[in-house]
Amino acid sequence: MSEFSSQLSELDAFIDGLDTLEGKLIVVLHKAQDVCGWLPAEVQNHIAHRLKVPASKVYGVVTFYSFFNTKPKGRCKISVCLGTACFVRGAQGIAEEFEKRLNIKVGETSGDKAYSLDSIRCVGACGLAPVVSVNGKVYGRVAPADVDGILNEHK
């Protein structure tokens, strides 16, 4: 039994429900990442098989878009906005503070899969710059001194 068998059957049910398979690769990948959390090679191969496209094409699309993850993410997903508005209000310093506290770089996940740290380009909450989003919750006007508090909230 594969590690993802239950997720793959959920994905299969979704694919079966589509009216056409043409042009649906990105739609299916969104769903796959939704149910699996990320897109391991096994899942990509499965999608290629089901949509009758080469696995290389699936891989090409997955790696083209920043939304798709080819590595598992941590339970606590921290995204520091590095859009221009946040950047000019010191977002780089916030990202560095998280790197220091978590001992990982932007784009990485901690060894125990507790945290992953990413940068995003603008969530559109520029009035609150600099902005950090943790598992979808947005923190505004963040200062480096707030980083500890944010991490404690998501222990």
Partner: peptide
């Protein structure tokens, strides 16, 4: 049609490729 995080998809021909499920 949901994008997946690629700035270039704001370019109209790239956008259409993306709608078709391809690289943008």
């Amino acid at each position: 049609s949901l994008g997946a995080g690629a700035f270039v998809c704001g370019e109209e021909t790239a956008l259409m490729n993306s709608v078709q499920g391809m690289r943008g």
